[in-house]
Design a protein around this nucleic acid. Structure first.
Lengths: 387, 387
DNA sequence: GGTATATGTTGCGCGCCACAACGTATCATG
DNA sequence: CATGATACGTTGTGGCGCGCAACATATACC
């Protein structure tokens, strides 16, 4: 830790705050970082010179004293966010502050290969970037629905795309010419909710998402995602909830993923392949109607009981301060009555369960792209002057 | 992060390395910290002045070049480690490097109250310290068999001692006059194994201990213990392993703690209240004998199946690189055949389970005191010149 | 319009580390 | 056993980054 590392850390801290808050005053920075006014002024000047932020004098006045200029992210430094799925490849350009400035969903005929994903991404990025002349791409992040080795962005297994033991980050980095990372999509959903969504402010967070390709999740401890040895942590979908339950695709018996299925919930409200919003709306309507469907109530009971076993384990293991539910698990939660909800943490240790907030995810369909952008930002933000 | 914090961090880094390695050469420090020779010299000199370390010229010669002096922890800076139990209060003085320099186990008639624990501890510490004149006590740590709020060392519930909602760290700090922390005993076992035992070098570690008062555990991520919101994380004993199993003392059904009991394992090898060493020896003898007891084999099968469900969940959640088993779970592991062992992670996701090392704990009866000392050291080591 | 308050700006000094040059202790070699 | 190579400690110098104090500036309140 020498002097130049101190500078790097402080620049990172300033930029991280500007990113998270989407703009702060210099006075805020002084308070938050505990550095001297003159130092903050110097740091901000360096970031303005490097093209990271703008300063503006339009801060809202609130109280006596000289108003402090606002430090805002420059909208022309961008990262690429990619989310390959079964029927489409979602590509976006995201600015500091997690704002999606351009997005395109490229529909594909069949599950794309990695090569096709790279090809579609580069073409789409070129198209999107043309709409933002003068802006600069500094990094890229990919949200992969599967197990991804975090170290090198290597896909171990993405069953729905039929990707096995294949590099993802490396070929895209070559094609785009910027540092590229890849990670599990649920991890990135967790990061997105943690940074800008329902996990805001939580230091210890459990995120569980129910998507069309199954249940995944992420764990944050001390504000940082738990990767585990290789980046495979957070697989909440494969917690065992019933030793006599159905055999899961993973080979084990009674996984949460095999018991609490999206298809069951969708069918009980009369839908076939709903997206998250449709499912949520249908479930809310059914649960809120005068004659609540008995089948729905029974299914919610059944699903919540399974979820309770998984959450009991996770809560006892991690003592989180908040739990965020996404996808069909958020719909399930919306459909549950207050007494039903209370059963979910009833079996966890009291000390750990008390005061845990359970909330639906807040970022909707932007979640994975925002999360992939978070992943991408990590690299340049850690050493702002090197970009 | 100003200049003086840099100094503090670097001093801490030097001291942490000396602590962990129980002494290193200055050349080692230069390589490990990436700082200049002259800087390391300066840092070490500051720590010598402050009474933290000694320098000696007795380094083992290995290669050409001027030999580098060894930097050794001074044996006269000590912390107090305490572990109150049902029948005894274990008190020790521990030096930098995790060496127990004095220890006394004070047997008590009945479960001690916190007041008694404080009283016995102060008296014992005075007695032990008398044997080490000139040494200085700088902090204290308590390993409590129960849920402890980490922030302020407040005991929420220690059922076997019948402690409920009572402060532990504060009264002991008052009595001893040094900064005092308290934490869950299994957490501290985890820290001890991580620093000096079977968890050495692991960045992501799962530790599960089976003690007379039940199964507890600890989780380390990136080399640091996961506390959770309040310090109640790691309760592996209350993962659900059988929805139709016995009701646990915690109120839930089918906890690991209620299924894999120490008493069952002890009784199948003909013991009643064995300590860890006795149990381990008896189990090894029984499993290694020519006519392996069928009852033991069946019990091991049954216990391992339950352990497998818990470990499957924990491994899928955390993707650890190593799992350390302590107490009767280590004995169980010792009794298991190779095929039995292989079933334990069979149901976890392949990518997460492959390459996970499962090992018995290595520190034996010193574990909790060494862990409590680790807790205690944390405070003074973070700012060495303030002590 | 004067005063209190909060913040930006500037110049100076200090703490901490890097670096280069030199001193020193060991090993390998003939 | 003398010599060179190697590795490391030591010393003095310099630079970088931050804190601080004094001053300048902009707002709110009376």
């Amino acid at each position: 830790m020498d002097a130049s590392r101190v500078r790097q850390r402080n620049l990172h801290a300033v930029l991280a705050l500007v990113h998270r808050e989407r703009g702060v005053t210099r006075a805020d920075l002084t308070r938050a970082l505990g550095l001297n006014r003159s130092t903050i002024g110097d740091l901000v000047a360096a970031l303005v010179d490097a093209g990271w932020v703008d300063e503006r004098d339009d801060a809202p006045r609130h109280g006596v004293g000289r108003p402090s200029p606002r430090v805002l992210p420059r909208p022309d430094k961008l990262v690429v966010a990619v989310n390959p799925e079964l029927e489409a490849i979602d590509v976006a350009l995201v600015s500091l502050g997690g704002t999606i400035v351009a997005r395109e969903r490229v529909v594909v005929d069949a599950a794309p290969s990695i090569a096709e994903t790279v090809e579609v991404t580069t073409a789409t990025v070129a198209r999107l970037a043309a709409g933002h002349p003068g802006s600069r791409l500094v990094a890229a992040g990919v949200a992969v629905p599967g197990l991804v080795r975090r170290r090198d962005g290597f896909v171990r297994l993405a069953p729905h795309l039929d990707w096995r033991e294949e590099p993802m980050a490396a070929p895209l980095a070559d094609a785009l010419g910027v540092p590229t990372s890849a990670a599990n999509d649920a991890h990135l959903g967790c990061r997105a909710e943690l940074a800008f969504g329902a996990g805001l402010g939580a230091r210890t967070l459990l995120y569980i998402n129910g998507g069309p390709s199954g249940i995944g999740g992420g764990i944050a401890v001390n504000g940082a995602l738990v990767e585990g040895r290789d980046g495979y942590a957070g697989e909440l979908g494969h917690l065992g909830v019933d030793p006599h339950g159905p055999v899961c695709a993973c080979g084990a018996r009674g996984c949460l993923d095999a018991v609490v299925t999206r298809a069951e919930l969708a069918s009980v409200v009369g839908l076939e392949h709903p997206d998250d919003d449709e499912l949520d709306a249908a479930v809310r309507a059914a649960a809120g109607s005068a004659t609540v469907d008995a089948a729905l109530t029974a299914l919610v009971d059944h699903h919540l009981a399974a979820l309770a076993i998984a959450l009991r384990g996770a809560v006892n293991l991690l003592n989180p301060e908040r739990i965020v539910l996404g996808g069909h698990l958020a719909a399930l939660w919306a459909a549950a009555s207050e007494p039903q909800r209370e059963t979910v943490l009833a079996d966890a240790l009291r000390a750990s369960a008390e005061g845990v907030r359970i909330e639906p995810a807040a970022l909707g369909s932007q979640r994975l792209l925002v999360g992939a952008a978070e992943l991408a930002w990590e690299v340049p933000l850690s050493d702002p002057l090197s970009v």
